[in-house]
């Protein structure tokens, strides 16, 4: 094996995986995430950091379009895969790694690709005012930012940020269209891609722990999040819940002991441990309209944490579960 072979083998030792999750595929997504971590690979937070785009489940038309745009944003060398079933995960990852390590094939693919970004392929990260045309004031179709009054009545620049649908720790198929003043949310609108009948909300311990782990991940406590995902036994979950609630610095970082995020995180862990009354008012269930109201005026980071606590209910249909 030559130097080039050694480089490509080393370079694909830790594949960075960006997951695009279609609705009703969370079990496959969890299996994929577990397999990625077991191999010592990395779950990427953004397209620029990814080698592999893993599409989980079967996306509808709208989500499919977004996946194409995200695929355009992956740097070369890149691979994509699609899995619809838990059993396919390991095989699909093996095949993807082999394809990623195939340098000559990757080079051919990269050659056919236009260099530099194409205007209009802007995605979640970028400012998206698509339709408007301001001539010279709008290079690549991006006009000057508009101003609007923020919460304190100051005239500030407005950024438009669609959060989701390809985002870690985020409900599948959900897009939250935000206007931002710096890091503060101004207006919010909820959109569901490929709206169809949703499955009933699943509120089993696995689901709750996964959501709690997402919150811990977003708060920067990776090791604690990994531990939460490994828990099975209710007694140990209960012990874990007490441990998290005793971590003063963590709670303070999440927004303080009485904050919405901490209350809901506690409810998630409580429900997973079977210690929570089903009728507890904290146990989730917000409508899309309520969600939009809930995030207005908050810090962007707080919005991410809050939505992560609500994933089980935002992905499923609460009323169908109750019926």
């Amino acid at each position: 094996m030559g130097l080039r072979g050694l480089l490509s083998r080393l370079a694909t030792r830790r594949v960075h995986v960006l997951v695009a999750e279609a609705p009703a595929a969370h079990e496959v997504r969890r299996a994929l995430e577990q397999e990625v971590c077991r191999r010592g690979w990395v779950l990427a937070g953004a397209a620029a950091d990814a080698d592999l785009l893993a599409v989980v489940g079967s996306p509808g038309r709208r989500l499919g379009e977004v996946v194409e745009r995200v695929w355009d944003q992956l740097p070369d060398p890149r691979v994509r895969l699609q899995v619809g079933h838990v059993d396919q995960v390991a095989g699909a990852l093996d095949a993807a790694r082999a394809e990623l390590a195939d340098t000559s094939r990757q080079r051919d693919a990269a050659r056919d690709r236009p260099s530099g970004p194409q205007p209009g392929e802007t995605d979640h990260g970028e400012m998206d005012h698509g339709e408007m045309d301001h001539g010279d004031m709008a290079p690549s179709g991006i006009p000057l930012a508009e101003g609007a009054q923020d919460r304190d009545g100051l005239e500030m620049d407005v950024l438009h940020l669609p959060l989701g649908p390809v985002l870690r720790h985020w409900p599948a198929g959900l897009v939250l269209h935000l206007t931002l003043h710096g890091d503060l949310v101004g207006q919010a609108r909820v959109e569901r891609l490929d709206e169809g009948p949703r499955p009933p909300s699943e509120t089993g311990p696995d689901r709750m722990l996964d959501a709690a782990a997402s919150v811990l991940d977003l708060a920067g406590r990776r090791q604690l999040a990994d531990r939460a995902r490994e828990l099975r036994d209710p007694a140990r979950i209960a012990a874990f819940r007490r441990r998290v609630l005793a971590d003063r610095v963590l709670l303070w970082g999440l927004g303080g002991a009485g904050s919405e995020v901490v209350l809901r995180l506690d409810a998630l862990l409580g429900a997973a441990a079977g210690e929570l009354d089903q009728t507890d008012p904290r146990s989730g269930a917000v409508t899309d309209a309520r969600l939009a109201g809930l995030v207005r005026g908050r810090d962007l980071g707080e919005v991410r944490l809050l939505v992560a606590t609500l994933v089980p209910w935002l992905e499923g249909d609460r009323e169908a579960a109750d019926a």
């Binding site: 480089l7 490509s8 080698d51 060398p77 990269a110 970004p117 991006i142």
Partner: peptide
């Protein structure tokens, strides 16, 4: 080192 840097619009 093997990755080709990607640019963003504008």
């Amino acid at each position: 080192l093997r990755q080709r840097p990607r640019r963003t619009v504008e």
